[in-house]
């Protein structure tokens, strides 16, 4: 196994860990804001690690650039959505625990 492949494997396993943590968080955490916290980890770190893992395998600059672009777009979308959801959730005062 070449060093590049090894890096891919390790990063992917780490990414899988973050996704598992994110989903566990959203299912198990007690209220909206803590769940939000869990989601952002999976969103930003998990997908970021997948992108990094795949960058080691990308065979052209264009494909690699697309991967990074996708991550940046998700970062923008995720940051904005979480801000909106947090704001709306606080405004509604829905702190009843679930």
């Amino acid at each position: 196994m070449s060093p590049r492949d090894l890096a891919t494997v390790l990063l992917l396993l780490l990414a899988a860990f973050f996704f598992v943590a994110g989903v566990l968080g959203i299912v198990r955490f007690p209220d909206t804001l803590t769940r939000l916290h869990a989601v952002t980890k999976a969103d930003n770190v998990g997908l970021g690690l997948v992108v990094f893992a795949l960058l080691f395998q990308a065979d052209s600059f264009l494909a690699g650039a697309k991967l990074v672009l996708i991550w940046i777009l998700v970062l923008i979308a995720s940051a904005t959505s979480c801000y909106l959801i947090a704001g709306a959730s606080l405004l509604d005062g829905d702190e009843e625990s679930g």
Binding site: V27, V51, V74, S81, D92, G98
Partner: peptide
């Protein structure tokens, strides 16, 4: 994770879960 969409309890929880699935789907596509 679909369980959270079903349980809620607030719409924002459901929305949050749906948002997570979007990212998961993107990771699967990659």
């Amino acid at each position: 994770g679909l369980a959270r969409v079903l349980q809620g309890p607030t719409p924002h929880d459901r929305l949050l879960a749906a948002q997570l699935f979007g990212t998961t789907a993107i990771a699967i596509l990659l």
